[in-house]
Design a protein around this nucleic acid. Structure first.
Length: 115
DNA sequence: AGTCTGACTAGTA
DNA sequence: CTACTAGCCAGAC
């Protein structure tokens, strides 16, 4: 279990670390990441962290992170608004109307899958 | 220092 | 399913 507010590792690095572990054809949510990191209710911080994700290396597969409804809320923050959906579809994730199809089946919760 | 905003969530109706 | 609310943290102004 990764704990938040460690002195060595920043919250953002942990977010990126978890997102990179998301397997292809799977997606996760901001809240799942937040709970796994121990921030719990501060899921907005995950979204804020994703705002900086393009500055870190290696790059973070931010397209696999959606909100709890499976909605691609962050697509407009990509270099191209269509990029997020195209990346998901290229990995075999069906996306329709900015929403991941069969979302519950494709959900990958780090708190349960990783531990 | 106060206020507003946001790639959010859980609860309630 | 939708709509609204409160709570949450960091940053911009």
């Amino acid at each position: 279990m990764i704990s938040i507010r460690d002195k060595d590792t920043s919250f953002y690095d942990k977010v990126y670390e978890v997102v990179r572990k998301v397997p292809a054809q799977k997606v996760t949510t901001y809240g799942a990441i937040a709970r796994y990191l121990g921030t719990g209710k501060s899921s907005r911080l995950v979204g804020w962290a994703m705002n900086n994700c393009h500055t870190v290396k290696p790059e973070v597969p931010a397209h696999r992170v959606v909100n709890r409804n499976g909605l691609l809320t962050g697509k407009m923050h990509f270099s191209s608004p269509n990029l997020m959906q195209e990346l998901l579809e290229s990995e075999g994730v069906e996306v329709q109307d900015n929403q991941v199809q069969d979302f519950e089946e494709r959900l990958w919760d780090p708190g349960k899958e990783l531990q």
